[in-house]
């Protein structure tokens, strides 16, 4: 299975780096108030319950309901406190413009988008509960599992054939085509791609790095299929599944194509 390579490099020269998309699951910690002594106490209590739950996970602080974090000095302090507890804080989300700028100065990345996902492991009590306030009403709540309602932003449904030369981009969910897709057409989706017809062109699913995205079609004649950046051309797929009802998905970082029963 191929990885995307820079096209302009001559075959015999050594490429110093390769670029690809990859998604990692981060732990989001939503502050419900200030990052004060009560917060750190509650955090320490959580960490003592499940010391390995948060280790090695990229940590993101959700600033939506946070208070008292406005200047880069506040963020630098937060980073120092969290890192001393072996929490790898990498960024923030849902902050104001000022907060984002201050966070950047402190070495944190203001992140956007992202999807809620169940956190693996942590079957003890510290793992998947939706968060508990240790003292008072100003404490940290860890968001794990499906505590947030999934934002099901529209699926794009097309009922006319997608013609060669057309490019369709479903930027917030799945793409469904109830017709065939021409040999020169391109389907691009953040989510899954479903083609209730012949898939002849290119289909790229999970383009934001969603490794669980799948491609389904009634007749596989695609020139190229890709999930989260990992692709196979028609040649790579081979002739065994040609014109069959199949689904394609990633298993152990390999793109597999399976007939649908």
């Amino acid at each position: 299975m191929a990885r995307p390579e820079p096209q302009s490099v001559a075959p015999t020269s050594v490429v110093p780096f390769q670029i690809r998309g990859r998604s990692f699951t981060a732990v989001v910690l939503e502050l419900t108030g200030a990052a004060d002594a009560a917060f750190y106490a509650a955090l320490d209590a959580k960490l003592s319950q499940a010391p390995h739950f948060f280790s090695n996970a990229p940590f993101v602080i959700d600033l939506d309901r946070a208070s008292g974090l406005a200047r880069s000095g506040d963020f630098t302090g937060l980073v120092r406190e969290l890192r001393s507890r072996r929490l790898s804080i990498v960024g923030v989300q849902n902050g104001t413009m000022e907060q984002n700028t201050a966070a950047l100065t402190a070495g944190l990345i203001p992140l956007q988008g992202g999807r809620d996902i169940a956190l693996a492991g942590g079957t003890d009590s510290g793992g998947t509960d939706a968060g508990e306030a240790a003292s008072g009403d100003r404490a940290a709540t860890a968001i794990a599992g499906q505590a947030e309602p999934e934002h099901r932003q529209g699926t794009l449904v097309l009922t006319e054939p997608v013609r060669s030369g057309q490019r369709v981009f479903a930027d917030s969910g799945d793409l469904v085509v109830v017709a065939s897709v021409g040999s020169g057409a391109e389907l691009i989706a953040v989510g899954n791609i479903h083609v209730y017809g012949s898939l002849r062109g290119r289909a790229l699913a999970g383009v934001n790095g969603d490794l669980s995205a799948r491609i389904f079609c009634a007749s596989l004649e695609a020139e190229l299929i890709a999930i989260a950046g990992l692709y196979k051309t028609s040649d790579d797929i081979g002739g065994t599944h040609l014109k069959q009802r199949v689904q394609a998905y990633l298993r152990d970082e390999a793109l597999v194509v399976e007939p649908l029963k």
Binding site: E160, P161, R163, S164, G165, Q166, G182, S183, G184, A185
Partner: peptide
């Protein structure tokens, strides 16, 4: 056939009808 498919795509987007929203 492949070129005709391309042209069908253009008929549904690069024509006055399509630009006015009257479809392909």
């Amino acid at each position: 056939v492949r070129d005709s498919d391309r042209v069908l795509g253009l008929l549904s987007s690069k024509t006055r009808k399509a630009e006015k929203g009257e479809g392909a």
